[in-house]
Simulated assay, not measured.
Amino acid sequence: MDNTCRTPRTPREKYGEELKLRRIAAGLTQEQLSEIIVCSPTLISHYEAGRRLPKPDDARRIDRALGTDGFFERWLEDLESKHPDFFATVAELEQQAAVIRQFALSLVPGLLQTEDYARAVFRAYRANYTTEELDEAVVIRTGRRRILEGPAQPVIWTLLDEAVLRRCVGGPQVMSKQLHKIAELAEAGRLRLHVLPYGAGAHALLESYLTLMSFEDSAPVAYVEGFLTGNLMDHPALVAASQTAYALALSDALSQQESLALVRAAAEEHLHGRQQ
């Protein structure tokens, strides 16, 4: 009898496994199926691994290709995410990534936000809101931090423009607490922290928020985000260009020790009113 402990399959993994079984039964390779539904073979691989879900139109094409009579499109409705559509796949992928490299231009990355900081962010761009709506949004966002509780994976690199440290979000106490939290995670070895100082001038990521994710058994992806929109890229050339831009920006950043000192200093300046 096999007593080996196995990680329970998620609903998305079950979806992916069923897709793989139906594809093989139809006598199709990942490449052949990707040609039929007009996507990359890498994307089919992500679907079958449970890392990503097809969009409704893609699920409809999968059903036509495999002759499954709407099966995958209907099942998709039961797997809806609590996150916005443009971010739902990213939220799933970061739970499975081996390495996450994130860059933030003006805002603390959602993965690292404290409850009070996140609440201030949500409050700022909602013209009308209720306490209940803010509470729900904060719970969803801060729930992503569970991946920080493990001692090993994912390995997280965090590159911050100095503007992230200087903008006072939620008030001096909220901002100070947020920056100290980031510093504590770095000092505990849970993330690698670097800051791009104002003195660096123009840098390779000056125009965009960027997250890079690598996996143990699948191709890497890159994600860029703007207001109410995001773009998840898996095309090798685009991912490679994003990785190069990150490396270039990182080369202009302060060392981890210098970055920690700057983050701690900024936290104290917020708290004691010495921000410029």
Rank of each mutant, 00 (worst) to 15 (best):
I156T: 05
L33V: 04
F71S: 13
A59N: 05
A65Y: 06
E94F: 11
H180I: 09
S34Q: 03
T89P: 00
F72Q: 11
T10E: 09
V138N: 12
W157T: 09
L19R: 06
P11Q: 01
P8G: 06
R141G: 15
R144A: 14
A202W: 07
G273V: 09
L212Y: 07
Y246I: 12
T114P: 02
H194R: 08
D69Y: 11
P109M: 00
S176N: 12
A219M: 04
R23F: 14
T42F: 04
S81T: 15
T211I: 14
L210V: 14
P109R: 04
T131E: 15
Q95M: 09
T229R: 06
R12M: 10
V221N: 00
R167I: 12
E92W: 04
L165V: 02
A91E: 09
P109H: 02
D58M: 12
E48Q: 05
T130S: 15
A204G: 09
G143P: 13
L134Y: 08
P11Y: 09
Q113H: 08
R126E: 14
L191Y: 07
R119W: 04
L66H: 10
A222N: 11
W75L: 14
H194N: 09
A152I: 04
S218N: 14
Q173A: 15
I100M: 00
E94V: 07
A59P: 08
M213I: 01
V169C: 00
K82Y: 11
V169D: 00
T142V: 15
R12E: 13
T29Q: 07
R190K: 15
A200K: 03
R22H: 07
P54H: 01
L43C: 02
I44A: 07
E17T: 02
Q256W: 03
A97I: 15
A25D: 14
V155I: 04
Y223T: 10
P151F: 01
M1E: 12
V195Y: 02
R60G: 13
K14R: 06
A253K: 01
Y209S: 05
R74Q: 11
V164H: 04
R52Y: 05
A118V: 15
W75K: 09
S214M: 01
Q173L: 11
E73I: 03
Q32A: 15
E18S: 14
L112D: 08
I140C: 08
E92D: 11
P151N: 08
R192I: 13
H272G: 01
A91C: 13
L248K: 07
I37G: 11
E18M: 14
R64A: 15
V169H: 09
A267K: 04
Q275A: 01
A188K: 07
R12S: 05
L107V: 03
Y223W: 10
A245F: 05
A127D: 10
E225W: 05
Y117C: 09
V38T: 11
D57A: 14
H180N: 01
E92R: 12
L111Q: 02
A49I: 00
A202M: 03
A137K: 14
R74L: 11
Q30G: 12
